[in-house]
């Protein structure tokens, strides 16, 4: 039996790398330190595999045929996608995959009831993967990654309960990996934002603080009752629900103490930015 020895969730946004310095100095410092803490935790966890659950911003599939959860199965994961390079302004990166472990996890999830798809070609990564692996320094650690790309924005979206349930099944699959393997789980997405909508340049700080406080309470049933897909959409259509990726991470570990590492409400970043970690 393998062990999940690290779990955290962080926001991503192009502004966090592309125009980080547009924020006030305190927000820059707090966010920089939070991502560094997550990076330090990952390094200290001595992982064999990090599963990153991140939403897909319509970067990989046509809207006419949009899968819910896509597992990247190949032996090397590179980014960022060419189109996003001028926007993100991050160095190119390449991270090892573990096709053997990806195969085992994917196989375990067959029959789970969710729309889970394997992808044996390179996935296009935008800020969803590029921002967290850059700001945490993970891209240079040489640790294998299993990207799980989630639909959080093309209707119909797997809602909070479907996401949490998939997380529970993912947790079972990860713990079923060979004895001694050390596994990490990182959710990437949110907080409030409305990409391409009328509130594109706005952030719902009240929602963000409420959500982070709710997670810190640690009652997952309450999270699922209150932090619904609809509530997320009220705080930013088509963007805030990226927090569903955090719920997948929560499902994979069950109720554990949760610590809020930071929150920053910076309009120039066009997205509420937060980070949490769980004691596992």
């Amino acid at each position: 039996m393998a062990d999940i020895v690290f779990a955290a969730a962080v926001s991503h946004a192009p502004g966090l790398t592309g125009w980080f310095d547009k924020a006030d100095e305190e927000s820059q410092r707090n966010v920089r330190e939070a991502y560094a803490t997550v990076g330090s935790d990952i390094r200290d966890a001595n992982l064999d595999l990090l599963v990153i659950i991140a939403n897909d911003h319509l970067a990989n599939f046509p809207v006419t045929d949009y899968p819910d959860f896509v597992f990247g199965m190949i032996d090397e994961h590179s980014g960022p996608d060419t189109w996003f390079k001028p926007w993100l302004a991050v160095e190119d990166y390449s991270m090892p995959g573990r096709p053997d472990l990806a195969e085992a996890v994917y196989g375990h999830l067959q029959g789970a009831g969710a729309n889970v798809v394997r992808w044996d070609e390179p996935l296009r990564f935008d800020d969803n993967i590029s921002v967290p692996v850059t700001l945490t320094g993970f891209k240079d650690m040489g640790v294998a990654v299993l990207p799980v790309i989630q639909n959080c924005t093309v209707p119909p979206v797997p809602d909070e309960r479907a996401s949490y349930k998939l997380g529970e099944q993912l947790g079972e699959a990860l713990r079923a990996l060979p004895d001694g393997l050390r596994i990490g789980v990182l959710g990437s997405g949110g907080l409030s934002h409305e990409p391409g909508g009328k509130r594109y340049l706005a952030i719902d700080g009240d929602f963000d603080r409420w959500f982070l406080d709710l997670l810190a309470e640690g009652d997952h049933d309450k999270v699922l009752r209150e932090a619904t897909f609809e509530r997320m959409e009220e705080a930013g259509i088509g963007g805030t629900a990226e927090l569903l990726s955090w719920l997948v991470a929560m499902g994979s570990i069950g109720e554990r103490p949760c610590e809020v590492l930071t929150y920053a409400e910076v309009p120039e970043w066009r997205c509420g930015v937060g980070a949490v970690r769980w004691t596992v």
Binding site: G18, P86, A89, T153, G196, G238, E268
Partner: peptide
């Protein structure tokens, strides 16, 4: 889909590197 509107805005107005409130997003 609104997200692709934001991408269309970038295609039509261009990507201004380092801009927090680019011409593309403001126009959208």
């Amino acid at each position: 889909h609104p997200y692709l509107l934001s991408q269309l805005a970038r295609l039509l107005y261009g990507t201004v590197e380092g801009a927090g409130s680019s011409e593309a997003s403001l126009a959208l």
